[in-house]
Every structure is written in C-alpha cells, then in structure tokens.
Amino acid sequence: VSVELPAPSSWKKLFYPNKVGSVKKTEVVFVAPTGEEISNRKQLEQYLKSHPGNPAIAEFDWTTSG
C-alpha cells in the first residue's frame, strides 16, 4: 500500500509506510515521467544527469511529510 505525496512537476512521490512488526524501514520512491522508480539520491542524481529538463535535485524532498 502506498500513499502519493506532493512531488515536483510531472513526477510522483510514493510513500510506503512500514507494516507493524516489519524490519523494512519506511520508504519514499519518486516515479519519473518515464515511469522509472527512483529510490535513493544517487539514482536520482544519475537520472537527472541523463535526462535534462527535469526539476533541480533540490526540489526533491525525501521526507514523508510531503
């Protein structure tokens, strides 16, 4: 189950709350306009370098507050 949070234009930000008793931590995933899922800052940096014209990296908020 995921919750969609505010994201930069043409992107989606999905929040996957951890299940009770789960060892997996809460996860935030950005979905690029191409449909590619980005789950960490390093991936995001690589994606933005190879896909010019996207929002600046500073516009991506990895917190769950939206």
Rank of each mutant, 00 (worst) to 15 (best):
R41Q: 12
G35A: 02
D61Q: 07
K42Y: 14
F60Y: 03
V20F: 13
V1L: 13
A56W: 05
W62T: 02
I57H: 04
K12D: 03
F30A: 00
T34W: 02
E27W: 15
S9Q: 14
V3S: 07
V20I: 12
E45A: 13
V28H: 01
P33F: 03
I57A: 09
N54G: 12
V20R: 09
E27Q: 15
S2D: 06
R41F: 13
T26V: 13
S50L: 11
G21Q: 07
K24E: 14
I57R: 04
I38W: 01
S9Y: 11
F15I: 12
D61K: 07
S50T: 13
V28P: 02
L5Y: 09
A56P: 15
K19N: 11
A7C: 06
K25T: 11
L14R: 07
Q43R: 07
L5R: 05
F60E: 01
T64F: 12
S50M: 12
V20T: 11
P6Q: 08
V23T: 14
Q46V: 10
A7N: 04
E45C: 09
K49C: 09
T64Y: 14
K24Y: 12
P8A: 04
S22H: 10
S2A: 14
P17N: 09
K24C: 15
V20A: 12
K13G: 02
G35P: 00
N54L: 04
E59F: 06
L14K: 07
L48A: 00
S10W: 08
T34K: 02
G66S: 11
G66R: 09
A7L: 04
V20L: 12
K24S: 14
Y16V: 09
L48R: 01
F30I: 01
F15C: 10
P17I: 15
N18H: 12
G66P: 12
Q46T: 10
P52K: 06
E36R: 03
L5F: 09
E36I: 05
R41D: 08
H51F: 06
I38D: 00
Q43I: 06
T63K: 07
E59M: 08
S22G: 13
V28E: 01
F15M: 09
K13Q: 02
V23E: 15
T64Q: 07
K25I: 09
F60I: 01
K24W: 14
S39G: 08
T34Y: 02
N18K: 10
E4L: 10
P6Y: 07
E59I: 05
L14C: 10
V29Y: 08
G66Q: 10
E37Y: 15
E37G: 05
G35D: 02
V28R: 01
G35C: 03
I38F: 08
K42D: 13
V28S: 02
D61L: 06
S2C: 15
N54A: 07
A32F: 02
V28T: 05
Q46S: 10
A58M: 09
V29W: 07
E4S: 10
I38N: 00
F30Q: 00
I57Y: 10
K19S: 12
F15A: 09
K24Q: 14
I57D: 04
T34R: 02
K49P: 00
S10M: 14
